[in-house]
């Protein structure tokens, strides 16, 4: 499913990208950065701007779906719960804790871009689209919230 979606995603991005390129070179030949920007999605900033993403931005733009897909099977089937490419951690970092934006709103990190690119995802039919915060069960044995754990490999500060 996701593979097909990736394919669709890629081809859609290519189509959208080339269309944008053609448009911008034709209409904005003088390079008006501000007006160009209005063609890009308005992506909300991460909560803590001093933290860097687990991968360079360009890489994430292109490959986040395969990272998440890979991690998804590892977590579910093998119990590997490293935070680096965990969807949960994307949400913890990119969606403000008290945000009212839900997936589907243009103010939600994921949908801001997905709405723009017209790529449908079904992650949030099951996953929560908001950070966990400290809402863990009172009987939970682990007092350590996942997103405070930076010891695992690959997390750069």
């Amino acid at each position: 499913m996701l593979q097909l979606k990736q394919l669709m995603h890629k081809s859609l991005l290519m189509v959208v990208g080339s269309a944008l390129l053609a448009l911008s070179s034709a209409v904005y030949a003088d390079g008006d950065a501000e007006r160009k920007a209005s063609f890009m999605p308005d992506i909300p900033e991460p909560m803590n701007k001093s933290l860097k993403c687990v991968k360079p931005e360009e890489d994430m733009k292109k490959n986040h779906m395969s990272y998440i897909l890979h991690q998804r099977d590892k977590t579910l089937r093998e119990g590997i719960r490293t935070p680096t490419f965990s969807l949960k951690e994307c949400i913890n970092c990119h969606v403000p804790e008290n945000s009212t934006a839900r997936f589907g709103d243009s103010k939600h990190f994921c949908s801001s871009c997905h709405n723009f690119a017209g790529v449908t995802i079904d992650c949030f039919q099951c996953h929560t689209d908001r950070p966990a915060g400290d809402k863990k069960h009172s009987l939970n044995t682990s007092s350590l919230p996942h997103y405070a754990d930076t010891s695992a490999e690959g997390v750069s500060k």
Binding site: G79, R81, K88, I91, N92, Q125, C126, H127, T128, P131, A132, K135, H137, L139, N140, T141, S142
Partner: peptide
């Protein structure tokens, strides 16, 4: 309002997970 560690959604089948998210951290089921 799913829990971040227990994703669940319409149209799929679900059952006791033995609180796998706790077990993986050395905990016991709720």
């Amino acid at each position: 309002d799913q829990k971040d560690y227990a994703p669940r959604g319409k149209g799929t089948v679900e059952a006791c997970t033995l609180c796998v998210h706790r077990v993986d951290e050395g905990g016991t089921p709720a």
